[in-house]
Simulated scan of single mutants.
Amino acid sequence: MTKPIVVSGMRPTGRLHLGHLHGALANWVRLQDEATCFFFSADWHALTTSYHQTESIKQAEREMFVDFLAAGIDPQKATLFVQSQVKEHAELFLLLGMITPLGWLERSPTYKEMRENITDRDLALYGFLGYPVLMTADIILYKATRVPVGADQVTHLELAREIARRFNFHYGQVFPEPAPLLTSAPKILGTDGRKMSKSYGNAIHLGESAEETAKKIMPMATDPARKRRTDPGEPDVCGIGFLHKVYSTPETIAWMYAGCRSAGIGCVDCKKRLLETLGPAQDALRERREALLARPQEVEELVQLGTRKARAAAARTMEEVRAAMKL
């Protein structure tokens, strides 16, 4: 039986955080045993919002690959590579751009959301508007049949499916339409109560020490309705509650729900109990990261090997594309 082909990437725009670990990396670790996986550094995508900070991309990329490996990605099972080192991504991006209607891009939910949330730089740019076309090229270049997404990201993938469908309509059946591989990722909120994001400055980074993690957890926003110690709270709207669901035992989770909803425990009690498991988990991840950071040449060689494998697969696809388009 042919394995499904899975493609996914992350932008190297800063340290990865707990949202990345539980929203994507844990799922990638599982998928590498079930599918042919391509996981990449989306450094060209990083330019769509970090075009003014290019000097930090390479360092962020090195640390990101370390995080991939520390989280359990096995380069013997999955192909790790750098987007910009496979020039076929750019070629396919250009060709797909020739047939993608402008209206499709302007309706992108992420385009609207990020323009509303990131106000400290100009995002009225061609590259930012056109990022879904590059994303489509990233996916279909490897003839991906599955793309791991959360339920809230299905609309983003549908645009890639439409572009692939449009290419096939004009030039013949070259690309499979990538189907969403729905993943149930736990919700992880940042220290300010919003979605955890590098862009929002509210992240708990992977492999921070237990002490650093505690400094962020203790003042972290909780249920906004719980203004006093005697007020009952609701863990299902609280960032600490969401983290308990990932890191704590069923007994601790039951303790949290009962105590918070009855005001039997305070937010400080709840945070301290969370740190009993989150702190050691962060320390263990930090130890794996530091061991990998001490062997930078080895990590670089693994990525270069994966990039060569990705380049070969991409070249085969582009031969088909040029033949189909009679170029």
Rank of each mutant, 00 (worst) to 15 (best):
I5M: 03
G14I: 03
R15F: 14
G19H: 05
L21H: 05
H22A: 10
A26D: 13
N27W: 13
W28N: 10
H45Y: 12
Y51I: 08
E55Q: 15
M64T: 03
A70L: 04
I73H: 00
K77W: 04
L80K: 00
E88Q: 13
T100A: 13
P109F: 10
N117W: 11
V147A: 07
G150W: 11
I163H: 03
V174D: 08
P176E: 09
E177S: 12
D192H: 12
G193Y: 06
S199Y: 02
Y200I: 07
Y200R: 15
A203F: 00
L206Y: 00
L206H: 00
E208V: 05
K215D: 12
D223S: 11
A225P: 09
R228Q: 14
E234I: 10
D236H: 09
D236N: 13
V237L: 09
L243P: 02
S248W: 01
E251N: 05
C260I: 02
C260E: 01
S262V: 04
S262I: 06
Q282V: 11
D283Y: 10
R286G: 10
R289Q: 15
P296Q: 04
P296F: 03
E298H: 05
E301A: 15
V303N: 02
L305A: 15
T317C: 08
R322L: 09
L327Q: 14
